[in-house]
Design a protein around this nucleic acid. Structure first.
Lengths: 250, 250
DNA sequence: AAATAATGATTGAAAATGATTGTTTTTGTA
DNA sequence: TACAAAAACAATCATTTTCAATCATTATTT
């Protein structure tokens, strides 16, 4: 059975039931436990299901808590490593921008610096920052439901009130020619503005984003420093000719 | 049975009954008493139920959902009536401002009008609006943790991008001399700005707010129409000399 | 052929569970 | 009220289950 088929089988089973056990999945697919576990890890990172001890569960659309505050720290190790590295760059008294998206969400729990001010376009980020006792500001703007990000001219306008020491952004593509890109132009505009208004802009990305490009241009590669988890040596050599790369080693 | 399944089972049982005994839960799930106890501890920490000696009890969740079905609380009934009346004032294609606070939160579920745009300074409000398929914008600004409101110059600045048909605000005091007041000056500034920018500003308030005054001035009584639940005849006569009052009769 | 990716088995670590302990709370009775 | 029995409790321990990491093997691509 092909990987894709297994993934489809798993998701179909989850349409009918609230949760599935690993054992049910090995029986349904004929694959080993290890393989199923890997499948579940992948599917969770794509946001298509939620892993639970013993199996997997449906993702509820309403999902109030981003299951971050809980112990279920099931971010990919890569994102965590990048998040940790990014957080370590924040110094006492900094004013920082934190972009919407799960990659940047992963850095928030690691922030140690005192007396910082954070502005964010992420809905969940705002609450998480405030919950950590960090002085948190929202950009304002339209709440885009799918990504839970504040976007559009409202957000850009909101940003123009501030000036940042550092900005931490997520993107969907990092491409030698296309630069940093993301699918939604409204979100791109916010990211572009944030990069403009930061002395040190950083892009957080995992390996899958390299050599990808999507619709809307954000900035050129040299406009920001890239923070990433482990990436292939080849990729690294290609991109570090154009901009700085901070590679988090776990 | 997986942990998640048990948790779901427990919560489902609690939807139907006010309390459940531990023994009922061990029978329903097949798990041991120890496990059920641990489940209850977890669920209580997540705020999803309340432990009582011998089992667990429902928790009334006023935080997120303004639990429509519940009729036990007199204040919430009053708020609901006012919310329903306020929502009926919103017409198709309106652009409205909805203030932070539980009073205004209560109006959101009753909005029927199509194709409206809503701007809000309330954190929960933003999500609730988006969840209802309403085009929702946040004001931006500092997230004040205690009230979950976006406040300060950031929020005022965000508001200045918009112009409203109607604005719905909550206040802490309605006083013949002091006008509308609220304890926090930062929040007051947001409310003042919203009233300025709306053709028809409304104040939502329950009876307890009348003849009260708190620190920060928002506006004068005549600057907005008051929407309220049932209030004493005497209060009504006093205040309707100065401004319009819409009294919701349940 | 060489590099890359996917798979299954194995391992020690981590998490969940059920039984047991002694303590606290409730209940019934004097 | 005072007291003792019963019920429910938190804390702890040993056992079982599940997990992530690693490695060797097998497909797949280059």
């Amino acid at each position: 059975m092909l990987t894709e088929e297994r993934h489809a089988t798993i998701l179909n089973l989850l349409k009918e039931k609230e949760v599935v056990k690993i054992q049910e999945l090995t029986e349904a697919t004929g694959a080993s436990e290890s393989t199923i576990r890997r499948d579940l890890t992948d599917l969770e990172e794509s946001g298509l299901l939620r892993r639970v001890h013993g199996g997997a569960a449906k993702v509820s659309r309403k999902r109030i808590e981003p299951s971050m505050g809980e112990k279920s720290n099931r971010f990919s190790e890569e994102k965590r490593a990048a998040g940790r590295l990014a957080a370590s760059l924040i110094e006492d008294n900094d004013c920082v921008f934190i972009d919407a998206g799960t990659t940047t969400l992963a850095l928030i729990p690691y922030i140690q610096a005192k007396n910082i001010v954070a502005v964010t376009s992420g809905f969940d980020h705002l609450r998480l920052l405030a919950a950590q006792g960090i002085e948190a500001y929202g950009t304002g703007g339209r709440l885009k439901k799918s990504t839970e990000a504040l976007t559009g001219t409202g957000a850009v306008h909101g940003l123009q009130q501030y000036w940042f020491d550092k900005a931490f952004l997520g993107v969907n593509g990092i491409h030698l020619k296309a630069g940093y890109t993301t699918p939604d132009p409204e979100e791109a505009a916010v990211k572009t503005e944030a990069i403009k208004r930061a002395q040190q802009p950083f892009i957080l990305a995992d390996a899958s984003k390299f050599q990808e490009s999507t619709f809307a241009h954000i900035a050129n590669l040299e406009d920001a420093v890239i923070i990433t988890g482990k990436i292939p040596e080849k990729t690294r050599r290609m991109f570090e000719k154009v901009t700085d790369i901070k590679e988090a080693l776990s």
